[in-house]
Design a protein around this nucleic acid. Structure first.
Lengths: 340, 340
DNA sequence: GCTGGCACTCTGTCCGTGCGAGTGCCAGTG
DNA sequence: CACTGGCACTCGCACGGACAGAGTGCCAGC
């Protein structure tokens, strides 16, 4: 049906115009700005149908139409073409991420870059501990019966944890402990680490047994702690720019971003196939995000997804461009992490 | 002069009322709400003088008066009494900071606590590298000619840095290097570390010399890098609450907070005597902060100032309470850090 | 030196009006 | 049957005048 086809064109045009102008779009303006080949009256009929189907709505009786969440959803799924990044943008990405010194540096550069490219709030999840492997474990004595356990993962993430020892220990004990730990855990996935503990306890020399038990308990605790997944947030200043899209106040959104846990859940649920995920408005199933969309994708080196990254903005955003930016940045980050 | 004295009382009353109501305060309301013992007409005369001296101003001809930056300054310096924290607040501080697992945890709890106590944006500086001492240096091989250098300071801060080696090296080299580095640097102040490098190069065995040179160069670079001072920011959602105090947009302020460098400069300039510093409006000498005040203080264990922390809010804030909160939190943080 | 009174100024608000944008419907046409 | 032009209708919004309220400055009196 050329009929239905045109209605979709109308919806696409509405989304595009509304995103760029922020004004409800009327039939006349639509006919002028797009080559739909029909008169405003015909477009009006199409719009009436689209409204009945729930894709668009009018804020007031005598205003133009505005896409609903459902309308944006259809647009994202079926109507938007991938928008390739400009050469300048690609170059900016390379320049931005090049020369990063450590993991924190990489992630904070990433978040700034993404915020700058999209003009929205950017979020990057730290590489998930559960998907990383142990590169090295370091034990440092800070008091007679207190150790600092430092875990370095193969993704460059560093976790530290204070451990109270059941007994005092000396330098030799610590050195022995360090060797034992690395021998046991180096190279193992963090998810597998817990399983090695019984083995470790068996092989440990008797005089170290209680110490090893305490330290490995702390280690396992650190690994399974799900709340330890961290988030880097940037570009909140961009929210002020689009404050008009959040009637009332920016507060709930800012709170959600600080709370981290909500956003983290959204960002970390990435598509296994590596596709960019878009969650629109109410789809986020969280009050504070009801007027917001989240565009996210997993990043990683090779086939491993280490974590997620993405942006948070008003539902009225330029989806094709932002999806492209998110995807491109994720690729580069994965690359950089693979190198380090 | 009982005369001047009363004028100051009037100023104090104006500040107090304006802070709590956000309405320009008039002579009549002042006479009603405060026991100044004089009539509105007299107060009007005092207000005229205060205005002439630049302590207050009226937004419009027929509105009440509002304190100027200069007025707040006088209030903070001479008119405000320290407001002790409530028992509940003290208990909240202890509860909040107890059970922190590592440095990052301590600092992020601190920033949340401070934001919650003051209802403003809270900022905490990471313990300055230059004032810390080396606790331990760890070297981990990540590729044939690539090492990860991990610095652990006595304040629990962990810095990492990738180092490209001039030559390939094996496990023995790395172990030797690690021992050498710790032997040389452990316990030294970071500011003194650079001075030890020549000594280190002399004592290093010949086959390691080039390696040691590369690694110590990277180390020194990490230490002197002034931009590496980090800032934890929290409670930006509170800005939305006081958006009315920032006519125009929150954007410049949010940008400044993200930029970090501006705020960092303000926070890190702490008073040697441990007093709480207040910078009001234009005193911040930065456009984006012209309507904002910064309340800050240094924190540290014992006599060492490790860094600064504080809050950023509108000039129209409750200075006595906020100063007390900032000071109390800084004390507790210093205590916690001394223990770990 | 303080007070009460008074005239004046200015802002914020409310209300009524007119304009413009946009719609829905309908009759007409290829 | 789908599309088009015309037309009446509905609202939101910007404009402007009137008004009440708050606050001031000044002045004469105590």
């Amino acid at each position: 049906m050329a009929h239905d086809e045109r209605r979709l064109q109308v919806l696409r045009a509405i989304v595009q115009d509304y995103v760029s102008t922020n004004d409800p779009v009327g039939s006349k303006a639509l006919a002028e700005r797009h080559d739909l080949g029909v008169s405003p009256a015909t477009i009006r009929n199409d719009m009436a149908v689209l409204e009945e189907q729930g894709y668009i709505t009018q804020p007031h009786t005598s205003a133009g139409r505005v896409p609903t969440d459902k309308g944006y959803r259809l647009f994202v799924d079926r109507l938007s073409a991938v928008k390739p990044l400009s050469v300048a943008e690609r170059r900016a990405i390379e320049r931005f991420l090049d020369g990063a010194l450590d993991l924190h540096d990489i992630l904070s550069r990433t978040v700034r870059l993404l915020a700058q490219l999209t003009h929205h709030v950017a979020v990057v999840q730290y590489p998930t501990l559960s998907r990383s492997a142990v590169r090295h474990l370091e034990v440092v004595q800070v008091a007679a019966a207190r150790l600092l356990l430092v875990l370095i993962t193969d993704t460059g993430r560093v976790e530290q944890r204070l451990v109270d020892c059941p007994v005092d220990c000396d330098g030799d004990d610590v050195a022995e402990l360090r060797a034992l730990l690395n021998q046991t855990f180096a190279g193992t996935r963090l998810t597998d680490a817990a399983g090695r503990v019984p083995d470790l306890l068996d092989t440990a020399p008797p005089h170290l047994r209680r110490l090893v038990a305490a330290v490995s308990a702390a280690l396992v605790e650190t690994l399974v702690e799900p709340g330890e997944d961290r988030l880097v947030v940037g570009g909140t200043a961009n929210l002020a720019r689009v404050a008009v899209d959040f009637p009332g106040s920016l507060r709930p959104l800012l709170e959600a971003l600080e709370e981290q846990v909500v956003v983290l859940r959204l960002i970390s649920e990435v598509d296994a196939g590596g596709a960019v995920l878009v969650r629109i408005g109410e789809e986020n199933a969280h009050e504070a995000l009801s007027g917001a969309s989240v565009v996210s994708v997993g990043y990683g080196s090779g086939d491993r997804a280490l974590g997620g990254l993405g942006i948070v903005g008003p539902t009225r955003m330029d989806y094709p461009t932002n999806m492209a930016a998110v995807r491109a940045v994720a690729r580069y980050v994965g690359q950089i992490l693979a190198e380090s």
